Structure formats: C-alpha cells, structure tokens
Computed example of a mutant assay.
Amino acid sequence: MSKKSNNQGRAYEFSYLIILYKEISKIRPVIINKNSSYFSAEKAWNTLTDDNKNLYKVSALAGINTIFDLEPLILDDSNDELEIEIQADDKGKLGDVRDILIIRQGIEWEIGLSIKHNHFAVKHSRLSKKLDFGEKWYGKNCSELYWRDIKPIFEYLDNEKKKSSKWSDLPNKEDDVYVPLLKAFKKELERQNTLNKKEIPKLIVEYLLGKFDFYKIIGIDNKKITQIQSYNLRGTLNKPGNERKKNIEIPISILPTRIVSLDFKPNSKNTLELYLDAGWQFSFRIHNASTKVEPSLKFDIQIIGMPTTIIPIDCKWKQ
C-alpha cells in the first residue's frame, strides 16, 4: 500500500471515529480512547483538504446511521459510558481485522468495524523463502515438499536482487516466478487439506476474515454509497437492546467445511481462485510489491463470492 493510500485509509477511519462520537453523544455518554492509533489517524486526517474532510464525513454518516439500525445496543438507554477507539495495526497480525471498536464495559459488550476506502481487499499476505504461510494461516507447518518446490524460485530472485534488477527487467516473471510459486502454494494447500479435511477450510476463512465477528464498511466515492457487509460468523452481532430493538435483522453465516476447487483463474498466470462450500469464494492474485526485485511477493486477496446470508447493504449518501 502506498503512503498516500495508507494516509487516506487512516483519515477515513478517523472520520468514523468523530462522526460516531458526534452522533452517539446526542443520545448517551461516550468517550474516545486516545491511543497511539488515534493520534496517527488524526495526523492523517489533518492532511486532508476541507472538501475531502466533508466527503469522508458524509460517507461515514451514511454507514453509521445503518450501523445504529443494526446494533441497538449502541444507543440503548443506559447510564453507562460507551467507549470508541481505533485499534492498533498489530491487532491484524493476531487475527483481529477490526479497525474501530465500540465498547460498553458495563454489559461486557463490543462490536468492531473494518473500514475500507474505495477497495474491497481482504488481506495482503506475503510469500517468501522463509515465511511459513501454513503455520500462520492455519497452524500447520509447511511441508518439506513445499520448501523444496519454492527454493529455486527464490534463489533466482536472490540472484536478481544482487544484480539490483527491477521486476520489469526480468524476461518472463510470470512463467519464471508467478506460475511456479502459485503451483507450489496450491499443492501445499491441497496437501494439507487432504491431511486435515475437517479443519483447513474453516481455518483459512478464519485467517482471512479474522477471529471476531465484524461489520465491513466500504466507502465508494464514485458511486456516492457506503456499503456494509455483516460477517456474523459466531452470532455475536445484531443483539437487541433493552429499550431499542434492531431495525434490520441479519442471519448467522456458516463457515465452510470443504474445499470444492482451487485452480488458476482462466487465462491468468498470477491468480488462483478458491471455491469452498457454503458459498465462500476467494481470489489470490500474486504480485511484486516493489519496483526492484526482492525475494518476497504479496497476495491481493479478494472475496469473489459470499454466502447468501451476507447481504450487502448500500447506504446512499445524503449531501
């Protein structure tokens, strides 16, 4: 992710924090926990023009109004103080993809929001000569066969790095790097799935989507809509309040139990498509994340199909 995109993402998170505070404080006591992530987001926010600040606020308000309909416990009548905070980026490495938390300590309740600005990416995981993706993704170490398969690929990249080569200098990076690396990745997933059929599909999705239920909120500027997707995999979202009732009902989604298909996207040398049962579908596009050659590549992982229980809600902006 470029520095500009990173700053825009942080600023967009900050817009949600200030709009949440403004709207909630009309109804009940609320505080913002000002941690290091808060100050980083505030700094990014202050780099925006006034026009962009207003745009982000309008986008955030559209999403937040619908979140209030989904989560009555946010505004439910009570004397306890509600807390909101931006989570540290390191939480993502621990399986928590939520950017903003809304917390009521008094009833031991919280929900999380994953905030995206103009993109739908799920993860940007890496593959390298030393990174054990199996241990990180689903708790199973990669096999010796996997390390053997990827060794010549990364030896080639190491040699090109020593020559200060650029990726654009490589005569055929797709056939020499992307295809064999994806084939090794594919074989390893299939190998582990054969050994652990009851675990791997579920663990992969939990790695990609995190260990906690959450709402993904995507601001789409060119369409002037904010889309909300509810990932209610454990039934912790959409709880009714004592006084307020939920205006929108969302179902619980089922995690997958088997891999249906894992193969190259048609006519592509850089993308695998993973199809699981229960309606889950993902694409894994491998790419170089830098201009100069380095022995590390990055995935752009996208959801290309979701269970019918995950119903996207498009919230139109009011300007």
Rank of each mutant, 00 (worst) to 15 (best):
Leu55Pro: 09
Phe39Glu: 14
Trp109Leu: 03
Ala88Trp: 06
Phe264Gln: 13
Lys34Trp: 02
Gly210Ala: 14
Gly279Pro: 12
Leu274Trp: 04
Tyr138Leu: 07
Asn242Phe: 15
Pro171Ala: 02
Glu85Ala: 03
Gln319Trp: 12
Asn7Cys: 06
Val177Cys: 02
Arg148Asn: 08
Gly112Cys: 09
Asn65Pro: 07
Ile228Gln: 00
Trp45His: 08
Val293Met: 13
Gly219Met: 05
Pro201Arg: 05
Thr309Cys: 10
Val205Asp: 11
Trp280Gln: 10
Asn288Arg: 10
Asn196Lys: 02
Lys223Leu: 15
Asn52Arg: 15
Ile225Pro: 11
Ser25Lys: 14
Asp51Val: 15
Gly305Leu: 05
Glu188Ile: 09
Gly95Leu: 01
Lys161Gln: 09
Ile31Met: 01
Ser165Thr: 02
Ser253Trp: 11
Thr291Tyr: 14
Lys292Ser: 13
Gln302Val: 05
Leu181Ser: 00
Ile31His: 08
Ile111Asn: 00
Pro307Gln: 04
Asn232Gln: 06
Glu42Ser: 13
Ile250Pro: 05
Pro312Glu: 09
Asn65His: 05
Ala44Lys: 09
Ser296Thr: 15
Lys292Asp: 14
Asn141Cys: 06
Gly210Glu: 10
Val293Trp: 11
Ser125Glu: 03
Pro307Glu: 13
Thr257Met: 05
Phe68Gln: 02
Ile310Ala: 12
Tyr215Cys: 10
Ile310Cys: 07
Asn172Ser: 01
Phe154Gly: 06
Gly139Cys: 03
Asn141His: 08
Phe133Gly: 03
Glu135Ala: 11
Asn196His: 11
Lys216His: 13
Ile200Cys: 08
Ala121Cys: 10
Gln319His: 09
Tyr138His: 04
Ile115Met: 05
Asn267Thr: 11
Cys142Val: 05
Ile74Gly: 05
Arg285Lys: 15
Asn118Tyr: 07
Ile115His: 02
Lys198Phe: 12
Asp69Gly: 10
Ile286Glu: 05
Tyr231Thr: 05
Phe14Ser: 06
Ile311Phe: 12
Gly92Glu: 07
Asp80Cys: 02
Ser114Asn: 04
Leu94Ser: 03
Arg10Phe: 06
Asn159Ala: 06
Ile74Thr: 05
Ile248Val: 13
Gly279Val: 11
His287Asn: 13
Pro295Cys: 09
Lys4Leu: 15
Asn172Pro: 01
Lys163Glu: 04
Ile252Lys: 12
Tyr21His: 13
Lys151Cys: 07
Pro29Lys: 14
Tyr156Thr: 03
Ile100Cys: 04
Arg148Cys: 11
Pro256Asn: 03
Ile102Gln: 01
Ile64Ser: 03
Thr271Lys: 15
Ile204Tyr: 01
Asn65Arg: 10
Asn54Met: 15
Tyr215Arg: 10
Gln227Met: 15
Leu209Ile: 08
Pro201Lys: 03
Gly210Trp: 07
Arg148Tyr: 01
Ile24Ala: 01
Lys186Ser: 01
Tyr56Ala: 09
Phe214Pro: 12
Gly279Asn: 12
Ser5Phe: 04
